[in-house]
C-alpha cells in the first residue's frame, strides 16, 4: 500500500492527514503549532503512522501559513489549491462542484470551481478577523460558553439579535452591550452567525452565486453558522466530511499525484 501525507500548518493548529493510493483517508490528526513547527509536524506524522501501522510515507505535501518552513514535507502548495483538491475527497456525494466556503481560524475564503473541480477563481478576507473562527471564539468567551456549544445553542433562538458591525472590535462591544441589556445569549449567538454569514456572502462574486455551496474549515462544524448560511442564501449548504482537515487532505491528494 502506498501512503501519502498532507500537512496544513495554520496559525494556531497544525493538521495532518494520511491517505492511501485510492484517495481514502486513513487517519487525521491535529496538534497545536507550538514554537518549533517542524518538530511538531514530525511528531504528529509519526503518531499518525504508528496508529495506521505504516512505516513509511511515499510523499508529503505541506500547505497553510507555515508550509515553507515545514522541512518534513517534500514540496508545498498554496491553501487555495489544497482546499480545491481536498473537496474531491471530502465533498458529500450530492454536492455538484461549485463553490467552497472555507472558514478557518484567521481567514475565510471562497473558492470557485468548474465542473472538474479545477479552481476558476477565489476571493479572500484576511485583513479582518470578523467572519473567522477566531471571532467565534472571542464571542463564545464573552457569552461564557464554549466553541462547540455556540452552534447548538443558537439553534434554540427564536428572535435573533441584530449585530451590524463589520469589525471584530466593534462587534465585540455590540455583543457586550446586548449582554448588558439582558438579551438571551441564544439570540445573540444566532445574530452573530447571521452577521458572519452575511459578511462572507458579501464576498461572493455575484456572477458565481448559482453553484452548490460547500463549507469547509473549522467553521463548518458549527451547525448554527451553517443554518445562518442556508437562511441567508435561501438554499441548501453542504458540509464537507472532515471539514477542518480539508486542506491537509487536499495536500495529501496532491502528494499522491507526485509520488
Amino acid at each position: 500500500m502506498k501512503v501519502y501525507a498532507g500537512l496544513d500548518g495554520g496559525s494556531t493548529y497544525l493538521k495532518a492527514a494520511l491517505i492511501d493510493e485510492y484517495g481514502r483517508v486513513l487517519r487525521t490528526g491535529v496538534t497545536s503549532t507550538g514554537i518549533d513547527n517542524n518538530a511538531s509536524a514530525k511528531r504528529l506524522l509519526a503518531g499518525l503512522m504508528e496508529a495506521c501501522g505504516v512505516s513509511r510515507v511515499d510523499y508529503t505535501m505541506a500547505t497553510g501559513y507555515s508550509r515553507k518552513i515545514l522541512e518534513v514535507a517534500d514540496d508545498d502548495v498554496s491553501e487555495i489549491t489544497a482546499h480545491a483538491y481536498g473537496v474531491r475527497v471530502t465533498a458529500p456525494k450530492e454536492y455538484r462542484s461549485g463553490m467552497i466556503v472555507d472558514i478557518g481560524g484567521q481567514d475565510s475564503k471562497i473558492i470557485y470551481l468548474d465542473a472538474n473541480y479545477t479552481v476558476k477563481n477565489f476571493t479572500m478576507n484576511d485583513k479582518c478577523a470578523a467572519g473567522t473562527g477566531k471571532f467565534m471564539e472571542v464571542i463564545a468567551q464573552i457569552l461564557e460558553t464554549t466553541i462547540d456549544q455556540v452552534g447548538p445553542l443558537s439553534l434554540e433562538s427564536t428572535a435573533p439579535c441584530d449585530i451590524n458591525s463589520t469589525c471584530v472590535v466593534f462587534a465585540q462591544s455590540e455583543v457586550i452591550s446586548l449582554v448588558a441589556r439582558k438579551f438571551d445569549r441564544r439570540d445573540i449567538l444566532s445574530g452573530m452567525h447571521l452577521s458572519m454569514a452575511k459578511r462572507i456572502i458579501k464576498m461572493m462574486k455575484k456572477s458565481e452565486k448559482d453553484g452548490d455551496v460547500l463549507m469547509t474549515g473549522g467553521g463548518a462544524l458549527n451547525i448554527g453558522l451553517r443554518k445562518a448560511f442556508e437562511d441567508e442564501l435561501m438554499r441548501d449548504v453542504f458540509v464537507a466530511n472532515y471539514p477542518q482537515f480539508n486542506g491537509a487532505i487536499g495536500a495529501a491528494l496532491l502528494a499522491s499525484e507526485r509520488g
Partner: peptide, 28 residues
C-alpha cells in the same frame, strides 16, 4: 482566461496578502 483583482496601497503591510493571492493565482 482567468483574472483576479488585487488591491494594494503604497506600503509593505499588504505584501503577505498579495503574496497569498498571487501564489494561488499562479497555481490556479
Amino acid at each position: 482566461v482567468p483574472i483576479i483583482r488585487v488591491e494594494s496601497d503604497y506600503n509593505e503591510e499588504d505584501v503577505e496578502q498579495l503574496r497569498i493571492r498571487i501564489e494561488a493565482f499562479v497555481e490556479l
